[in-house]
Amino acid sequence: MSASNNINITLKVWRQKNAQSKGQLESYDLKNVSTDSSFLEMLDQLNEELINEGKSPVTFDHDCREGICGACSLYINGRPHGPGNRVTTCQLHMRSFKDGETIYVEPWRAAAFPVIKDLMTDRSSFDRIQHAGGYVSVNTSGNTQDANALPIEKENADKAFDAATCIGCGACVAACKNASASLFVAAKVSQYALLPQGQVEAKDRVLNMVKQAQKEGFGPCSNTGACEVECPKGISLENIARMNREYLAASLSK
């Protein structure tokens, strides 16, 4: 590992008891944070101290700590997933911060992602968008054709894969001034639009998923591209363009 050292930091952390209460930023000084620690390990350290002092630890979502489950979701110094590009909060390391630095830690802010407690938000709206069409209607019976009976052009297969790597974290929404979920919806729509398996239901899928996103209170897309910049998986804006084409074609033919 690279040379590690310890730093002292000041944290301003959003504390909110529950969905109903009003929250506020609280300040904590934290000493001896190893620069090899991840951001969440730093919060573990803070929580350990809070517990030992008889205070209530900070609540935040996390699970895999490998940048793949999409649970972690912190707004750090005004950026979703903090400084650096293409990293999730759990992959952010303390070597990205300076000794003596003050770090602001807040939850995602969006009407469709209400705060549950402290830094944890409710992102079930994302699930409901997927219920509206994020699947291919094929039975899981196993009576399908041989997998290689359907060759798929590598270029499309690769693009579909790239779109499918979205982890559903919601950073795109948090980054957007309209709190639009376009990048997230487009990633799923694109994955299927690029694959032959997705064609049959393509029209309904895009119409229903977009409709559900609006119903959940996500805003419109005004093409600023902030989402792409903050997306930890590098989901490309091209997907939004593809979704718009699909949407237009579907609306005209319905």
């Binding site: 899981t140 399908t144 054709q145």
Partner: peptide, 24 residues
């Protein structure tokens, strides 16, 4: 049953790696 799993997943749209001929 292992072979069936791959068929099933491809039918669902799981984007497995493919070669230039478009096969898995």
């Amino acid at each position: 049953v292992s072979a069936n799993i791959i068929d099933q997943c491809v039918a669902q749209g799981v984007p497995f790696a493919r070669d230039y001929g478009g096969l898995l």
